[in-house]
Lab assay of single mutants.
Amino acid sequence: DESNKPILLPNESQSFERSVQLLDQIPSYDTHKIAVLYVGEGQSNSELAILSNEHGSYRYTEFLTGLGRLIELKDCQPDKVYLGGLDVCGEDGQFTYCWHDDIMQAVFHIATLMPTKDVDKHRCDKKRHLGNDFVSIVYNDSGEDFKLGTIKGQFNFVHVIVTPLDYECNLVSLQCRKDMEGLVDTSVAKIVSDRNLPFVARQMALHANMASQVHHSRSNPTDIYPSKWIARLRHIKRLRQRICEEAAYSNPSLPLVHPPSHSKAPAQTPAEPTPGYEVGQRKRLISSVEDFTE
């Protein structure tokens, strides 16, 4: 099969070098950035008060330690540790928490760990991170309901609301924008112990962030949302095809390698009803078989 044979790379090609550099910018793992907010007593309706908090309760602090690993920003190499735009020179604080497994990295933009500057009256330095995160974990210690939209931002799609209760338990629920209701189930609340709260809140936030990324990708319907490693695979396959075309153009005697095509017509299947918005969006999480067989 010609399409699977190794090909020689061009010795000097600026377009090839640019493509390789672009490939280096696509990590081999999925990345997520999640905002974390603490809401104190009497702050449920005040964005400024929430963003001005420099610490929270003892249970909130224990919750943070379970979310991930504490890292010092100045020691991080952005090409190895995903920071979601946090500055490593102290502009966004000294520490944050991050978490990773074999296929993804997540960083938490924690408002109480970011510096509260006197010259920044409206807390814009914090909002440029927190307001651009799709998902926020809100530790609501106010005793009042927290409403979506209290923290203004164009991309605040989903809130994971943590409400501490007695007996070391917590109520965990989801809020989302109306255009996200087909992807996020907000109907079920959970009672979770303090011990298990970081794991549950983190998983709910990661799932909500993946759904938000799919939702946000609708602005470019021709580019369905893939995982990062599938995006790398697609980029490599496009690069291979372009090299083959350039080689055939410079030397017409060489065969032009095309991806294999299936001449056999697909079997006719009964027509199915058109899937609704929710089903269609969830299918976009699934990769096409052509990603692996071309």
Rank of each mutant, 00 (worst) to 15 (best):
E2L: 12
E2I: 09
S3Q: 13
P6W: 05
I7R: 04
I7C: 07
I7N: 04
L9V: 13
L9Y: 09
N11M: 11
E12K: 06
Q14W: 06
Q14N: 07
S15V: 14
R18C: 08
R18W: 07
V20P: 05
V20F: 09
V20H: 07
Q21W: 05
Q21K: 07
L22F: 11
L23S: 07
Q25R: 12
Q25K: 11
P27S: 05
P27V: 05
S28H: 10
S28D: 15
Y29R: 13
Y29K: 14
H32Y: 12
K33M: 11
K33V: 07
V36H: 00
V36R: 00
L37Y: 14
Y38W: 00
Y38V: 00
G40V: 00
G40K: 03
G40N: 03
E41I: 04
G42K: 04
G42I: 01
Q43Y: 02
S44Q: 12
E47S: 02
A49H: 03
I50N: 02
I50L: 02
L51C: 02
S52H: 04
S52C: 06
N53Y: 00
E54Q: 05
E54F: 03
H55I: 07
H55K: 04
G56V: 02
G56M: 02
S57G: 03
S57A: 01
S57Q: 01
Y58W: 15
Y58E: 05
Y60P: 01
Y60L: 00
E62A: 07
E62F: 02
E62W: 02
E62S: 07
F63N: 00
L64F: 05
L64T: 03
T65D: 10
G66T: 01
G66L: 01
G66A: 02
G68K: 05
G68T: 05
L70A: 05
E72I: 05
E72W: 12
L73P: 15
K74F: 04
D75Y: 14
C76Q: 11
C76M: 07
C76D: 14
Q77L: 09
Q77M: 12
D79C: 04
D79P: 08
K80Q: 03
V81Y: 15
L83Q: 15
L83Y: 14
G84P: 13
G84T: 06
G84A: 12
L86D: 15
D87H: 06
V88I: 06
C89Q: 12
G90V: 08
D92V: 08
G93H: 12
G93T: 11
Q94R: 14
Q94K: 11
Y97S: 05
W99R: 02
H100M: 09
H100Y: 10
H100P: 04
D101S: 02
D101I: 00
D102P: 13
D102R: 03
I103P: 05
A106T: 14
A106D: 02
V107I: 08
V107P: 02
F108M: 02
F108H: 01
F108E: 01
A111S: 09
T112Q: 02
M114V: 04
M114D: 04
T116Y: 07
K117F: 13
K117Y: 14
D118E: 12
D118Y: 09
V119G: 13
V119E: 14
K121N: 14
K121C: 11
H122C: 14
D125G: 15
R128F: 09
R128G: 08
R128Y: 09
H129N: 07
H129A: 10
L130C: 04
L130N: 04
G131A: 14
G131I: 15
N132S: 15
N132M: 12
D133S: 08
D133P: 09
S136A: 12
I137P: 00
V138D: 01
N140P: 00
S142Q: 01
S142T: 02
G143V: 01
D145R: 04
K147T: 10
L148F: 15
G149A: 10
I151Y: 04
G153V: 03
Q154S: 15
Q154M: 13
N156M: 13
N156C: 07
N156E: 04
V158H: 01
V158F: 10
V158I: 06
V158Q: 01
H159R: 03
H159E: 15
V160S: 00
V160P: 00
V160H: 00
V162P: 00
T163N: 05
T163P: 00
T163Q: 14
T163D: 05
L165T: 02
L165P: 00
Y167V: 03
Y167A: 04
Y167W: 06
E168I: 01
N170Y: 01
V172E: 00
V172R: 00
S173M: 11
L174A: 04
L174V: 14
Q175H: 06
C176H: 03
K178H: 11
K178P: 14
D179C: 11
M180P: 01
G182Q: 10
L183H: 09
L183S: 05
L183M: 13
V184K: 02
V184A: 03
D185V: 02
T186A: 06
A189P: 13
A189K: 10
I191V: 08
S193R: 01
S193H: 04
D194I: 00
D194L: 00
L197T: 09
P198M: 01
P198Q: 00
F199D: 02
V200T: 03
A201N: 00
R202L: 03
R202Y: 02
Q203M: 14
M204V: 04
M204I: 06
L206R: 01
A208P: 00
A208S: 05
N209K: 01
N209I: 03
M210Y: 05
A211Q: 03
S212W: 03
S212M: 14
Q213S: 06
V214L: 05
H215Q: 09
H216Q: 08
R218M: 10
S219N: 13
S219T: 09
P221L: 05
P221W: 04
D223E: 09
D223Q: 07
S227Y: 06
K228Y: 07
R232T: 08
R232V: 05
L233I: 04
L233H: 07
R234H: 06
H235P: 05
H235T: 13
H235F: 09
K237I: 15
R238L: 12
R240T: 13
R240G: 14
R242S: 15
R242E: 14
R242N: 15
I243D: 04
E245T: 11
A247F: 15
A248I: 10
A248L: 06
S250T: 10
S250A: 08
N251K: 09
N251G: 06
N251V: 13
N251L: 13
N251D: 13
P252L: 09
P252V: 10
P252S: 11
S253V: 11
L254N: 15
L254D: 15
P255N: 10
L256A: 15
V257A: 13
H258M: 10
S261M: 08
S261Q: 09
S263G: 12
A265C: 12
A267D: 14
Q268I: 11
T269A: 09
E272N: 10
P273R: 10
T274W: 09
P275R: 10
P275Y: 09
P275G: 11
G276Y: 06
G276S: 06
G280V: 08
G280R: 08
G280K: 07
G280M: 09
G280L: 12
Q281V: 10
Q281F: 08
Q281Y: 08
R284I: 10
L285T: 13
L285W: 07
F292W: 10
